[in-house]
Amino acid sequence: MFTIKKANLLFWIFLFLIVLLQLSLSSSPNFTLGVALIHAVAIVLILRVHVSFLNVLIKKYLKTHDTAGFVISAVSISFATAILLTAAGYFITTKLLSDANLMENELISMFCGMLLVSILIAGMSYSIELFKQNIASEKKHQELRNSVLEMEIDHLRTQLSPHFTFNILNNLQFLIRKDQDEALELLSRYSKILRYYVYESQNKWIKLDDEIAFLKHYFELEKDRSGEDLEISCQWDIPENTLLIIPFLLSTFVENAFKHVSSFKEEKRYIQLHIFLKDENQLFLHLKNASGQQVSNPKKGGVGLKYVKKRLELSYKDNYELELIPEADSYSVRLKLNLTKV
């Protein structure tokens, strides 16, 4: 992964090579590769110290926003760096090249050039430090957004928990109206559903197969409870997979269907469900039930659908398509999810 530290290292290597190449191509015949190497190392080290002081100054400025103090300090540091660079050049030229007269004639020109380089490096350092601060700030904001997102998802999960528990407890009255053997069978199915609810509802992601198994238990339970006048059609085209899904997502739609079909007073009551996979990770849910309540008064649809829409938006964002189709005597749900693998 390409990081800021790597970019910083590459910059100084690039600067060293540029300075070395420039000095090696000098017109002075005595400016050998060894001398050029020494001079390039000296220039880069001084500039590196120059940048270190500037970074401290820039960080202080970004906190205090003292513009006047920052400009004066930055110019002073640049002047000091230019003097050091000029002195280093003078020392190397006079001691290693024995070219004192040439250096003395060009000291002012060298100083001006080094000052320009120092100021340019100062500007680059400020831009880089500002860029790094913006990245750090954006990272903190993203972490905060993720934290808020997780809290909102957890909140929705806790909202769904009492909703599901209420549905279970509301159906317990059915148990006492059956004979003992059938009541025990129903209790066994309830225990499987509640076990799944207690353990899996706390997880952020669960296996798709576990959610499908839960739905099958739920359908078996509702078949016994609803009686023979309710026509139930289920298709489960789910091959072996390693896909993950958020818990109680699909079951919320199913709960809603059973809730409203039970209040439908017409002769023909039905629920049709088809869940299938395409392209390995695309899950489709097609659900239709006989009901007129959502059309006549859609605000009484309960909390389930409201929360499941929020969970879809928070957990899947652009990876889902949901279509709710209320009609005169039926209600349809068409859901498409792009799931992730284990």
Rank of each mutant, 00 (worst) to 15 (best):
E143T: 05
S109Q: 15
V198K: 14
T94H: 05
E104W: 04
I206T: 01
N171P: 02
I108M: 08
L102Q: 12
D99T: 02
E150G: 01
Y196I: 01
M114Q: 13
R189S: 14
K204N: 09
N134L: 12
F111R: 02
T93V: 08
T94F: 05
L194H: 03
E200K: 15
T165I: 15
E104C: 03
A80N: 04
S125Y: 00
A136E: 14
A87N: 04
E152L: 01
Q142P: 00
F166P: 00
S125A: 14
Q202H: 09
S191E: 10
K139N: 08
L149S: 04
M151R: 06
R177T: 14
L160S: 01
E182Y: 09
D179P: 07
N203I: 05
H141V: 08
I206Q: 00
F111S: 00
E143F: 01
L85G: 03
L156R: 02
L194P: 05
P162A: 10
A136C: 06
R189K: 14
Y197Q: 09
T86L: 04
G113L: 07
V148K: 09
S98E: 13
L84F: 13
V148G: 02
L175P: 00
L169M: 13
L120C: 06
S127N: 06
S118E: 02
S98F: 11
L184E: 14
M103Y: 15
I108W: 12
C112N: 15
S109V: 15
P162R: 10
C112G: 12
R157A: 08
M114L: 12
K207N: 14
Y90W: 15
A100C: 10
L172C: 06
T81R: 00
A80L: 15
A100W: 14
Q180P: 01
L169P: 06
Q202D: 08
I153H: 01
K192N: 11
I176K: 09
E138P: 00
L187D: 05
L184K: 10
R157G: 03
R189H: 14
K139E: 09
I119A: 07
Q173S: 10
R177Y: 10
D181P: 03
E138Y: 06
S118L: 03
S125K: 01
T81D: 01
D210R: 07
I83Y: 10
